[in-house]
Amino acid sequence: MTYPLADNAYGDDVTLEPTRAGYGRGLRAAGEANPAVVGLCADLTESTQMHLFKEAFPERFIQIGIAEQNLITVASGLAHAGKIPFTSSYAAFSPGRSWEQIKTTVCLNEQPVKIIGSHAGLYTGADGATHQMLEDIALMRVLPHMVVVVPGDSIEAEKATRAIAENGQPSYLRLAREKTPVFSTEESPFEIGKAYVLREGYDVTLIGTGTMTHKLLLVAAKLATEGLNAEVIHAPTIKPLDEATILDSVRKTGRVVTAEEAQIAGGLGGAVAELLGEKLPTPLHRIGMRDHFGESGAQADLFDHFGLSPGKLTPSIKQFIDQTPKYHQGF
């Protein structure tokens, strides 16, 4: 089945909404569906969009104060008592500050605590490096039992929230603060552990996660006008990674690009490099943050500066294609 994209996915009129908005709606829906769902927040109720849940279920909302480590340990206790705790903060602080608590009290304990890291990546306004969480994918991906989901848009974030509410596992959901393009539709599939081919091609496989996927769609459209056919894969689940979908594509294209607004070390780029290194060594170009911090600035300036805007992605990907012979196993 071809993945249904929004009619205006490639247009200038593409709908814009922050992924955290989808989370807010998804959590309220998860709360309606299951009375075991409880919401915990660390003094960021509205900006993480947990206020929708709080308004609907005031008796199931718990204010922790500015205490991210306690946020996780209390959630673990609630999970042990049979609840499904969603914990909301900025990703910089949870999992940023609460990592060891997550490792021990959530993952080692195998408690189905949901860690929601909002304001992740570069879409954090002008707050600067301290608030731009770029290491969260790596931090969460190395934890046994942890599921890691990075929704591509607000519609998918809503579906992902519903899905992790019922998966019975420790789960991390990465969200962005700013409005980003909504490229999927209500009918588009979402399943934890699945990656989706949004666009077929044979010259290169472009794998995106989170808000970068839409930029890759624009890049692929641009490349098509130059006679290059890029396959675009959207990987909203970083862990477990959909190895089959990625390997099938790479066998066809022989070249791979990954894109994320995160550190490539340990991020999507790291995950794909590990997969290809073990199962199908293939030339790989990882786009993202290369061992540096972010900084304050307008969104457009930042994405341009770090090479993550479509205008910067296209030449960099084109150069990679030009300089990299197609590699096929057995060459």
């Binding site: 002008a126 301290t130 900084e295 500066h305």
Partner: peptide
């Protein structure tokens, strides 16, 4: 303040 390239980052560095 808070502009790209400024020494006055959104939070002090």
């Amino acid at each position: 303040l808070r502009q790209f390239g400024s020494r006055l980052q959104g939070h002090p560095e």
